[in-house]
């Protein structure tokens, strides 16, 4: 059944049966829910956290591979989850676990080449967001990486849940040589940022990450304190596309939001130097690309 053109988003998603299906995607392993909960509890200690991660052997292996990669640049070998938690901290390990789990979505669901391209672009957006956050001295740099990584997750969900609608969007995007986002809005009346936002909401990730995913194409719509993270992901998406890392389903660059530019004071940033930093970090992130 195609997505109805009119009506509010939840009605349209309900009509598609997507909410039900998203729940059934089992995209967030139980371990993530438990870890997120544990991290909110100040009484949680390293042993408890390590144990929670170790309950998933595949996840443990992937996490250890990632923490030992050039991306984290830690001297010497990190041989256990508890060692990683002690050396890298709760927050970093949580984000690595989340990244490894998101990787599973791209890996285990039948997105084919499209999912691989979006993964590569998403990863580049995460790397660009983290580099930009460092440049503008925004404190939640790891959240920027995660939000960048997740910003286009709605495209993969759309591909899986509504392949016919997805094909119509792709066809329109190619024919009109326009943005994938514009085609979604025109053809479906709903976009990947809203679909992605619904998924993030179900995962109960922090609100600032939810806002960044669900508003990365129109950051000016946000007025609260979270707008900086959203602005960073919005700009990082543009930079990753311009630098040609991965493919997000179209060949165009979205228009930058002037408010996001001003919020981040990009007039004071040496963009060429920033691109060099992004490229350097992108090379180190190669391990994530190989994992797919």
């Amino acid at each position: 059944m195609p997505i109805p053109r009119n009506g509010d988003i939840s009605e349209r998603m309900q009509a598609l049966g997507s909410l039900h299906t998203i729940k059934n995607l089992n995209t967030q392993p139980i371990v993530i829910a438990r870890i997120t909960q544990m991290l909110q509890d100040p009484a949680t200690n390293t042993d408890e956290l390590s144990l929670a991660i170790r309950t998933d052997q595949g996840l443990t292996t992937r996490v250890l591979k990632l923490v030992n990669s050039a991306f984290y640049g830690f001297p010497g070998k990190i041989g256990s989850i508890s060692h990683a938690v002690v050396l890298l901290g709760f927050s970093t390990v949580k984000n690595i676990v989340l990244t490894a789990s998101v990787l599973d979505i791209f890996k285990t669901n039948s997105g084919g080449q499209f999912a691989r391209n979006v993964w590569k672009h998403s990863l580049a957006c995460g790397v660009a967001a983290q580099s930009l956050a460092r440049t503008v001295e925004y404190e939640f740099q790891e959240e920027c990486f995660v939000a960048g990584l997740l910003h286009d997750i709605g495209k993969v969900v759309l591909f899986q849940l509504a392949p016919d609608d997805f094909s119509r969007v792709v066809e329109h995007t190619d024919k009109m040589n326009t943005l994938f986002y514009d085609s979604e809005c025109k053809i479906l009346g709903i976009s990947h940022q809203e679909i992605g936002g619904m998924l993030i909401e179900q995962w109960r990730l922090p609100k600032k990450i939810l806002n960044a995913v669900s508003s990365h194409h129109n950051p000016a719509s946000l007025e609260d304190d979270d707008s900086k993270l959203t602005a960073i992901v919005h700009c990082a998406d543009i930079f990753a596309r311009a630098l040609g890392y991965g493919n997000s389903g179209d060949k165009k660059i979205p228009m930058i939001d002037d408010k996001a530019w001003d919020t981040l004071k990009l007039d004071t940033v040496n963009l060429e130097r920033l691109f060099d930093t992004i490229e350097s970090e992108w090379e180190k992130a190669e391990v994530y690309v190989q994992e797919l």
């Binding site: 311009a242 060949k251 963009l271 691109f275």
Partner: peptide, 24 residues
């Protein structure tokens, strides 16, 4: 790069990004 940016170059900030990416 121009083909990618062409619809956005009315914006002064997009021109700055375009120039920086080209130079880089």
């Amino acid at each position: 790069l121009y083909d990618m940016f062409v619809d956005t170059l009315d914006s002064a900030n997009m021109r700055k990004i375009f120039d920086a990416v080209c130079n880089y």
